[in-house]
Amino acid sequence: MKKLFFISGLILACISTRAQVATLVKSYNAPVLADNTGGEGYKYWQYDNGQVIIYNTDHTLYKKVAINGAPKNISGYPYISTNVFNTDSKVEFMFSILGTGGNTGYIYNEDGQELQRFENMLVYEVKNIDNKATLIISKYNGGGTDIYHLQGKYTGLKPEAKEQGQTGIYPNPVDNAATITYTLPDGVHTGTLSIYAVNGVLVKQMTVTDQFNDVLIQRGDMAPGSYYYQVHAPGIQPLKQSFIVR
């Protein structure tokens, strides 16, 4: 019995002296992303019930921006920047709203003013091409691609690039649509996104390219339940990423 007490005490001592490597500094009640806005460094932001909420890096509130007529949820990851869309000092952001004939993209500033909209979108991306901030919009239902030059300068809008082969999905759980992010290896131009039911049955499959880093998926006829997806391409080990349709 003494030996048992000694072993138990030793285990408890080891647990109590285990060092923590991560310190919680803030908890939000909704998904929050960090983006580099350019002129003002990083900001945290979230979309909640028709408004974009922007926080400073010390988690104090920077600004709430109401989007008139916006639904509860938006599709895709918005871009947020002070330097890309124009040259003033205000924060601008681009997001998309799901529609029956593709998405509608919007660019707003921090005053809630709509600067421009784009109809019939599928996915969009901002890149630095020949030192010009360039907006690339792939159109819905095989409608081609539109390329725009923006007024400002590209400074890297999204969070730092993930390692090759890593992916993510937002929102999760999925109601109507979700955006899956991915990164193809250098020199690989196309891959395959496969979505499976939890029992391994293939549900959806589509081609992804290195022209974009994310793709919009529609819920369609996917019944409520658990699913997973994989991105297949030369040079990467497909990882199972789980999500829920509700």
Rank of each mutant, 00 (worst) to 15 (best):
D221Q: 08
T57G: 03
I236Q: 11
Q230A: 03
S27A: 13
H59Y: 15
K240C: 06
F85D: 05
K139L: 01
K158P: 03
G76P: 12
Y47E: 08
P173Y: 01
T87K: 15
G41N: 08
T87R: 14
K153G: 11
N29S: 14
L12R: 03
Q113Y: 00
A161Y: 06
A197T: 03
Y108D: 01
G187L: 12
Y196S: 03
S75R: 15
Y228F: 13
G102H: 09
G191R: 06
F5T: 11
P238G: 10
Y154Q: 05
T17N: 08
T100H: 00
I107F: 04
Y106D: 10
N36Q: 10
P159F: 12
I195C: 00
A177H: 05
D111S: 14
V52P: 00
V215C: 05
C14P: 02
R18V: 05
I80K: 09
S138K: 15
Y28R: 00
G105T: 10
A161V: 11
Y124T: 08
I147A: 09
F212D: 09
K204S: 07
S8D: 01
V188M: 10
A66K: 15
L122C: 10
L216E: 09
Y227T: 00
D130E: 15
Q113A: 15
Y55P: 05
I54W: 00
Y228N: 01
D58N: 14
A66L: 07
I195S: 00
L135G: 14
D210I: 05
N213H: 08
R117L: 10
N120G: 03
G191H: 08
N83S: 12
K64L: 07
I107W: 03
N120W: 10
G156P: 01
Q164D: 10
S27Q: 15
I97D: 11
Q51A: 11
I180C: 02
Q51I: 12
D58Y: 04
L4F: 15
Y79C: 06
K63E: 08
Q237E: 15
I53L: 05
Q218R: 13
D221A: 11
L12Q: 04
F5C: 12
G144P: 02
N36E: 05
L12S: 10
K158L: 14
K72N: 14
D186I: 14
T190H: 13
G235P: 05
T192W: 04
L135W: 13
L239H: 11
G105W: 03
S194Y: 00
Q218S: 11
P185L: 10
K72I: 07
P171N: 08
A223E: 14
L122S: 15
V231K: 02
T145E: 13
L184I: 01
D48F: 10
N172H: 04
S89W: 06
Q205W: 00
I137R: 01
Q237H: 15
Y28I: 02
I195H: 00
V208E: 02
G235H: 09
D214T: 04
V231F: 06
S226R: 00
G191N: 06
I53S: 09
N29D: 15
P173G: 05
L61S: 07
E40K: 13
T207H: 03
V123Q: 04
P185I: 09
